[in-house]
């Protein structure tokens, strides 16, 4: 807690000879950032200033829900590529008082989220509200949450704190088609619907995990990426590896 960057591991561009090391920079999560479950995160469209925060999640996958025909931002694509993160895009119309996610897309995203090898994953749309919220609502239904609780959570992230009538019908009428494999996350384990499924690191009684994975991405790769993208990018990656 001494306010020094990174355990003395100070990237060369962060210091100037003769000056004290800089104060720790704040971490800037994307808007409406939250944990959905262990290793599943949600939020709004990540911008450059969020990448330093997101790097610390050691993501394996970024799932973007974007209007058809709108490519993801170059920053996001480049950063995912440089960090070794798989970037998956699904179509979801711009929010406009209508249901923007089709049941097939929602089922596909939920299936991806619970598949082994996807997590840690970050799920986002443009504002982190309605589209992401609908997918999370479907995930909660799969988890067996009661409808009231699903709606309460949805409204916490939605514009105006409300669920439209159509969205309510969508969530209540969602009947799945979700693929559940033979390996499920710990928080889906012990469900009679997929009784034979195992979960990777479940310890009896209390949850646990294996040793932390080695830090990714390589510092050098990120620095090289940042160097090509100017000062904002440098600020964005500074402190990633500390």
């Amino acid at each position: 807690m001494d306010g020094i960057v990174g355990n003395g591991v100070i990237p060369p561009f962060a210091t100037t000879a003769g000056h004290p090391p800089p104060r720790l920079l704040p971490l800037i999560p994307p808007f409406r950032f939250a944990l959905v479950q262990e290793d599943i995160y949600r939020g709004a469209y990540p911008s450059l200033k969020n990448l330093r925060f997101l790097s610390r999640l050691r993501l394996r996958t970024v799932i973007s829900l974007l209007p058809p025909g709108a490519p993801p931002s170059a920053d996001l694509v480049d950063w995912c590529a440089a960090s070794g993160i798989a970037h998956v895009t699904y179509p979801a119309a711009k929010y406009d008082d209508e249901v923007t996610v089709s049941p097939a897309v929602a089922a596909a995203v939920v299936s991806t989220l619970i598949a082994p090898g996807t997590t840690p994953a970050f799920l986002h749309c443009r504002d982190g509200g309605h589209n992401t919220g609908l997918v999370v609502a479907c995930l909660r239904r799969l988890q067996g949450w009661g409808l009231g609780a699903v709606v309460e959570e949805f409204c916490r992230y939605a514009k105006g704190g409300e669920l439209t009538r159509e969205e309510g019908v969508f969530v209540e009428g969602f009947r799945g088609g979700v693929r559940v494999g033979t390996t499920v996350p710990r928080w889906l384990a012990n469900d009679p619907r997929w009784a034979g499924a195992t979960c990777p690191t479940a310890a009896p009684g209390r949850p646990g995990r294996g040793a932390p994975p080695p830090p990714r991405p390589a510092w050098a790769v990120l620095c090289a990426w940042a160097a090509r993208h100017g000062p904002m990018a440098l600020r964005a990656v500074r402190g990633v590896v500390d």
Partner: peptide, 8 residues
Amino acid sequence: MEHVVVGG
């Protein structure tokens, strides 16, 4: 295996 989501 595909799963149908029913009331929770």
